[in-house]
Computed example of a mutant assay.
Amino acid sequence: MTDFAAARFFMVEGQIRPNKVTDHRLVDALSETPREAFVPESARGVAYVDDDLPIGNGRYLLEPMVFARMLQHLGVQATDRVLDVGCAGGYSTAILAKLAASVVGLDSDAALTAGAAAALAAQGITNATVVTGPLAAGHAEGGPYDVIVVEGTIPELPTALGDQLAEEGRLVAIVHDARGVGEVRLFQRVAGVLSSRVLFEAQPHALPGFEKKASFVF
């Protein structure tokens, strides 16, 4: 039988702390949250693997180190309103809920959102809600958001997501560059202008629903 507490400890000590993650609130949230409670039973034995974790229907949880470094750069505050795009089984939403005032977890897969809502309730998390809808459209009804997290690789940032970011808000997403390399980018809105910078490279699986529309060349 898997010792999940030990696996969680070694994830934090072996994958998180050595990779420039020093925010004690974030480290505490990762140390306390049972990742295995947010994945299918068949995947629980490998819930703490240092890689993207397949959870079915072509969906994955981000590698713990990549996810933690993304949140480290966001500097989530206790007063922040957060949108978690591609929340899948709800693990990322649970971590964010321990850092922020409120979180909206968004996914396009109704089975995933139902499971996420149940897992969050089972963990006693009351400041997070889960909604079903197109990922690239975001969830404008709950915005504007101080923080937006995109849980997978996308070809470009949709205008709809940028528009839901509050003034001085931060958004982190993994965007393919011209070479096809995944760049973790931090977007910020200052004086109404959205700008971005590259934080580090990562190669997670693609998040569905963000495919570029084909253009016609005459």
Rank of each mutant, 00 (worst) to 15 (best):
V21L: 05
V21E: 06
D23E: 09
H24V: 15
L26F: 09
D28L: 13
A29G: 08
E32N: 11
T33R: 02
F38E: 06
V39A: 06
E41N: 14
S42W: 15
G45E: 13
V46F: 13
A47N: 08
Y48M: 10
D50P: 14
D51S: 15
L53N: 13
P54H: 12
G56M: 01
R59M: 03
R59Q: 12
Y60N: 14
L62C: 12
L62Q: 11
M65H: 09
F67N: 09
L71T: 03
L74K: 07
G75V: 06
G75P: 02
T79W: 10
T79M: 11
T79G: 10
R81I: 05
L83M: 08
D84G: 00
G86V: 04
A88Y: 14
G89F: 07
T93W: 01
A94H: 02
A94M: 07
A100Y: 06
A101W: 08
A101T: 07
S102V: 09
G105S: 10
L106K: 12
D107Y: 11
S108V: 15
A110C: 12
A110V: 15
A111Q: 15
L112A: 15
T113L: 06
A118Y: 10
A119W: 07
A119D: 07
A119M: 02
L120F: 04
A121Y: 13
A122M: 08
Q123K: 13
G124P: 07
I125Q: 09
I125E: 10
T126F: 08
N127M: 10
A128I: 00
T129G: 07
V131Y: 01
T132H: 04
G133C: 09
A137R: 08
A140T: 05
E141D: 06
P144H: 01
Y145D: 06
I148E: 01
V149S: 07
V150S: 04
V150C: 03
G152D: 08
P155K: 03
P155T: 04
